[in-house]
Design a protein around this nucleic acid. Sequence first.
DNA 1: CACAAATGCAACTAGATGGTTGCGTATAAG
DNA 2: CTTATACGCAACCATCTAGTTGCATTTGTG
Lengths: 119, 119
Amino acid sequence: MSPRRRAAAKPKPLQNCAPVFAALGDEIRLTLVAALCMGGAMSITQLTSGTEISRQAITKHLGVLSAAGLVRDVKVGRERLWEFEPVQLDEARRMLELIGRHWDHDLAKLKFAMENNPS
Amino acid sequence: MSPRRRAAAKPKPLQNCAPVFAALGDEIRLTLVAALCMGGAMSITQLTSGTEISRQAITKHLGVLSAAGLVRDVKVGRERLWEFEPVQLDEARRMLELIGRHWDHDLAKLKFAMENNPS
DNA sequence: CACAAATGCAACTAGATGGTTGCGTATAAG
DNA sequence: CTTATACGCAACCATCTAGTTGCATTTGTG
């Protein structure tokens, strides 16, 4: 099968990364992602220590990040280690680059139109 | 004055761009930003046409984007034109690049440690 | 002036979100 | 075995969010 060779299921990449932005749109979750990036895999209690909120709240935030595909977890003994998963964040970064690039292009078009049609 | 020459007021850039991500974390708002980037300045009714929701809902979404510094508005006659404001989005993109870069660095360290200390 | 178009403002509702507390369960350690 | 640690699950609550409807206000047009 496989009637189309590529880009068969990506008509609107905006839909894909809106949940990723929503997951990043919280200061605590952004701090968690940054901590996992720089500190490697960490357990829930490690991530909770240093914050002002409870362990269960951190667990919920990790669940949101996991649902967005930004983190993964592995069970090690009685602990549950969480680690960063860069794929979705890369996708989101590319989306922002794409938007910025389109804006530059439109600005160039606008400048050209104004210079060649000043009336 | 100015005891440090640079980076005096940016101890935690995470706090700055979390609201930007929150504003981008909605499919409709992401579509609005993309439309304003590629279509230039547009009025509320222009942005409303083609969607399934009401004009007031679009107005609220534009208010959220404006509060995050992602769009600006100018009054022209009886219309209110909205245009893209790239500063905050660039900041958010740089934040994602920073996080990804730190992750790469950590992964490199991990790889180095595993190769040189396999036990 | 009369009218239509574009927008603003306020009240209201259903559902999502972020947080808590309490208790139960699995696993490592003494 | 007993205990402490790390975590899961569920109920509960306050607030925010996204959307609606209804009506008032500004502005261009005939």
